[in-house]
C-alpha cells in the first residue's frame, strides 16, 4: 500500500453538502475551478432535496464544467451533515477528500494551501484554522465571539486536542483516514466537527493546520441559541468519557 501510494495519481474529491444553496453552489464551483489548477479533482454535491432548485443549477454547472468534474449525488430529504459526508464518500474517486461548506464562508482560494501543506508534511488531515496569524473571522458580533472563545477555552482545557480550531469544518482528509474516523462519530452539528478532529487526534493521525478566513454572510446569531450551547456542553462531556 505504501509503495502504491507514491505511484498512484493524486486526486482530490471535494464533498459539498447543500440545502437551498442554488446561488452559492454556482459561485463556489466557479471559485473552485478558478483556484484549483494543475491538480486532478472532482466536486461532489450532496443535496438534501432542496426545494429552491439547487439540483437544477448543479446540472447546469455540469454542462459548463463537465459531468466528470461535478457530480450530483442527491438525497431525498434533509438527513444531516454527518451522513451527507458518508453518502458523498461512497461516490468519491479521489484519494484525498476535502470537506467544505457551500455558503462561501469557506473560500476555495485556500485549497492550494491545504494541498501544499499536505504534500509538504504528508499529513493525514489538514484542518483550516481561524484562530492563528493569517486566519480570521468576519461578521460576528461580540456575543458570538465571546461564545466561540468560551467554547474553545473549555474544550482545550478539558480535551487537550492539539488543534487550535475544533469546530471549523474546512478540512482535507486522506480518504482512508476519513473513512476510519467518520465511522466512529455519532454527533451532530458543531459537535460533529469537533468529534471528528478529536477522535483523529486520539487515533494518532498526523494533523496539520493552515490559516483560513471565515466570512459569515448570514448575519445574526440565530445559529447559536441556548439549546446549541447545551448541545455543545453535552458533546464535550460525551467526548471526555468516550475518547
Amino acid at each position: 500500500m505504501e509503495q502504491e501510494k507514491s505511484e498512484e495519481k493524486i486526486k482530490y474529491s471535494i464533498i459539498v453538502p447543500t440545502y437551498n444553496e442554488r446561488l452559492n453552489i454556482a459561485l463556489l464551483v466557479y471559485l473552485i475551478f478558478k483556484h484549483l489548477r494543475e491538480v486532478d479533482f472532482e466536486v461532489i454535491v450532496v443535496d438534501d432535496g432542496s426545494p429552491d432548485g439547487t439540483q437544477e443549477v448543479v446540472k447546469q454547472l455540469q454542462q459548463v464544467y463537465g459531468e466528470d468534474h461535478i457530480l450530483l449525488r442527491p438525497r431525498p430529504r434533509k438527513l444531516g451533515l454527518g451522513t451527507a459526508y458518508i453518502h458523498g464518500l461512497k461516490h468519491v474517486s479521489g484519494n484525498f477528500i476535502v470537506i467544505m461548506d457551500a455558503d462561501l464562508s469557506h473560500h476555495p482560494k485556500y485549497l492550494p494551501n491545504f494541498i501544499k501543506k499536505q504534500l509538504e508534511t504528508d499529513a493525514d488531515i489538514v484542518t483550516g484554522t481561524r484562530y492563528v496569524k493569517g486566519g480570521g473571522v468576519h461578521g460576528w458580533n461580540l456575543m458570538r465571539k465571546l461564545t466561540s472563545r468560551g467554547a474553545n477555552v473549555l474544550a482545550h482545557t478539558l480535551l487537550w486536542p492539539g488543534v487550535s480550531d475544533l469546530t471549523g469544518s474546512f478540512r482535507l482528509y486522506r480518504k482512508s483516514v476519513l473513512e476510519d474516523v467518520i465511522s466512529s462519530c455519532v454527533s451532530k452539528g458543531y459537535v460533529f466537527q469537533m468529534e471528528m478532529i478529536v477522535r483523529a487526534s486520539r487515533k494518532g493521525y498526523h494533523i496539520e493546520e493552515v490559516p483560513i478566513t471565515f466570512v459569515d454572510r448570514v448575519f445574526g446569531t440565530s445559529k447559536l441559541g441556548g439549546s446549541e450551547i447545551v448541545e455543545y456542553l453535552k458533546g464535550l462531556l460525551y467526548l471526555l468519557v468516550t475518547t
Binding site: 473560500h107 481561524r130 492563528v132 486566519g135 472563545r149 478566513t213 454572510r217
Partner: peptide, 21 residues
Amino acid sequence: VGIGLTRFPTCPHEALLLQQD
C-alpha cells in the same frame, strides 16, 4: 477568554474581496 477576545482575528478586507469574487 479575555485574551482570546481582545486578540480575536478579524478580516473585514476578506469580506470585500469575497464581494468582488
